[in-house]
Amino acid sequence: MKHVNKRLCKIVDEVFTYFLNIGANDITVNFKDKDDHYQINLKCNYTSMNKKKLDKLIKYINHPKSEEMEEYYWELAGESDIDTELTLVGMMTDDKTIEVTEDTIEIKLKRYKKS
């Protein structure tokens, strides 16, 4: 696969942009290169987030992995600050967990090195 590092950066970029757009001012990004996968954890604070927005976030991120969609559209991730490509994040990752508390959102993403 080509542009492995850039694709990882795009995943972070997309989620990071989303966090900024919902008004987060405290964001943590943790990246680990493990033997068989990459682990990307992103956490942010938030002040106001209605249920509809939260449901959308969960729905988009939980898009099943889709290599054929990733291969064509991965360049779009993180490109726009007026709309999201969070479904692409779902398509580009194998496992995803979203933990929401009263004032934080944490997204844990796992991307295997070999499909």
């Binding site: 064509y72 559209y73 360049e75 779009l76 709309d83």
Partner: peptide, 14 residues
């Protein structure tokens, strides 16, 4: 086609 079509997405941002 594959490398070009992916690259050119950025021109119009989808």
């Amino acid at each position: 086609l594959p490398p070009l079509s992916t690259f050119l997405l950025r021109a119009h941002q989808g």
